[in-house]
């Protein structure tokens, strides 16, 4: 049950280093509390099945979930309704979506939605990761759903990069592209780049299938396989290109641009110099 200090090293451009000590401790506390909550919640569900659905108000909320409830009621309730039961034409019910979905949607800034579009886009989060997890705890308490494994931020540690790469190419690259830079989908939708995605976000996305993305449940891709995939994506994110500047790893399109805008332009300028008056 440790805090997340062991985030793998990234280039400083990508994202500021881990949260400061105080915050870290707080996350640690939250994590511990969450874990406790799961144990308690699990026991509770085991002993009293069917209780939750009928008596929302009787759900025993952990302190984190209670905090989350507060946040939910200030920012999410307008679309997702009281007790996250959904509002027709505005937002779906969140009962049973699980904490992983909440952490992904809120943690990447996709929720709260600012405008209706083809799909929710990543933007600067309105809530801290802590708060996102608190809301997640609340939603989880309302109805069981996919959860992220706790604890830790580095979910790819010890993964088999080669195997992960194989799985990535079969399952992920068709939409997110071989360089994990994302790609277009039909009618304005798109698969986002994974360049700035954290391990937990990737894990949560596989688990919950946000937006257009299919669900990759634990039966299809075991937690070990998910770890391998994350290890491969980490490798993509951190391994510098061996052949010089990678041109965004997008493939032949920027290469074609480069040969004209850099190669041809440089050479044609030389021809002007060669044939110019001396």
């Amino acid at each position: 049950m440790t805090a997340p200090p062991e985030r793998r090293k990234r280039s400083p451009l990508r994202r500021p280093a881990g949260p400061p000590g105080k915050l870290r401790r707080r996350i640690g506390t939250t994590a511990r509390l969450l874990a406790a909550l799961i144990v308690v919640g699990g026991l509770y569900t085991a002993f009293s099945p069917g209780m939750q659905a009928t008596a929302d108000d009787e759900v025993v909320l952990s302190p984190a979930a209670a905090e989350g409830k507060q946040l939910f009621e200030t920012s999410c309730i307008s679309c997702h309704g009281r007790n996250a039961q959904g509002v027709p034409d505005r937002g779906p019910s969140l009962i049973g979506v699980g904490s992983a979905a909440v952490e992904f949607q809120v943690g990447t800034g996709r929720m709260p939605l600012t405008s209706q579009g083809a799909q929710a886009e990543r933007k600067t989060p309105q809530f801290t990761l802590d708060q996102a997890r608190q809301i997640g705890a609340y939603i989880q308490a309302l109805g069981d759903g996919p959860e992220l494994p706790l604890p830790g931020e580095d979910l790819g540690k010890g993964g088999d990069v080669a195997h992960g790469g194989e799985l990535f190419r079969v399952n992920c690259s068709s939409c997110h592209a071989f360089g994990a830079g994302g790609g277009a989908l039909s009618s304005g939708k798109s698969a986002p780049t994974l360049e700035e995605s954290t391990d937990r976000e990737i894990y949560a996305a596989m688990l919950t299938g946000p937006s257009s993305m299919p669900v990759f449940g634990d039966n299809q891709l075991t937690p070990d396989e998910k770890r391998d995939i994350i290890a491969y994506i980490q490798n993509l994110q951190t391994d510098p290109d061996p052949g010089g500047w990678g041109l965004g790893r997008v493939g032949p399109v920027p290469e074609g641009l480069a040969i004209f805008l850099i190669g041809m332009v440089a050479i044609v300028f030389t021809t002007l110099w060669i044939a110019g008056k001396s």
């Binding site: 068709s174 790609g183 989908l185 039909s186 698969a191 937006s211 257009s212 993305m213 299919p214 669900v215």
Partner: peptide
């Protein structure tokens, strides 16, 4: 391989 499956719209896109 037409394999870009959009689970919400149920469209399958060939890249």
């Amino acid at each position: 391989p037409a394999s870009l499956y959009e689970q919400q719209t149920n469209r399958l896109l060939c890249p």
